[in-house]
């Protein structure tokens, strides 16, 4: 599971150029990537880093696979949603993978620990 995550993160970072190399070294580097750009947009509903303070479910500390599966089910209409189905239709399969990979790395961000 872990290596699978890392793989996805690496792939996501390649698009953001330099960060792919820097990725294992320091946290902030992979923030300047296409994956981060896509994922930051979710925070308006799910909270910064996917940590939601209110009624919308948190999405941090889920594996990349869980998130990818959920997003695709919303898009295909096999999972009930009020808004996610409409929203996820705006992303390609590749983008969904980048997003899932990005959130898959966040866990317990409150105390500054990444998975």
């Amino acid at each position: 599971m872990k290596s699978c995550n890392l793989n996805k993160r690496l792939r996501s970072c390649l698009i953001g150029t330099a960060c792919a190399v820097l990725l294992p070294v320091i946290a902030q580097a992979d923030e300047l990537s296409r994956a981060a750009m896509l994922s930051y947009t979710c925070a308006g509903c799910h909270g910064t880093n996917g940590i939601s303070p209110g009624s919308i479910p948190s999405i941090y500390c889920k594996t990349a696979d869980t998130i990818e599966k959920a997003l695709k089910e919303y898009r295909d209409g096999t999972r009930f949603s009020t808004v996610m189905g409409r929203h996820v239709k705006g992303y390609t399969d590749d983008e969904i993978q980048l997003i899932a990979g990005f959130f898959g790395t966040y866990c317990n961000e409150k105390i500054g620990i990444k998975k």
């Binding site: 509903c45 799910h46 909270g47 939601s52 303070p53 209110g54 919308i56 009020t82």
Partner: peptide, 20 residues
């Protein structure tokens, strides 16, 4: 009703995203 509940959730998340 769910969308009204999520509206509050959106509010809380967006405010947290700017200030917290």
């Amino acid at each position: 009703n769910m969308e009204a509940v999520y509206a509050q959730g959106w509010y809380d998340s967006t405010v947290a995203d700017m200030f917290e």
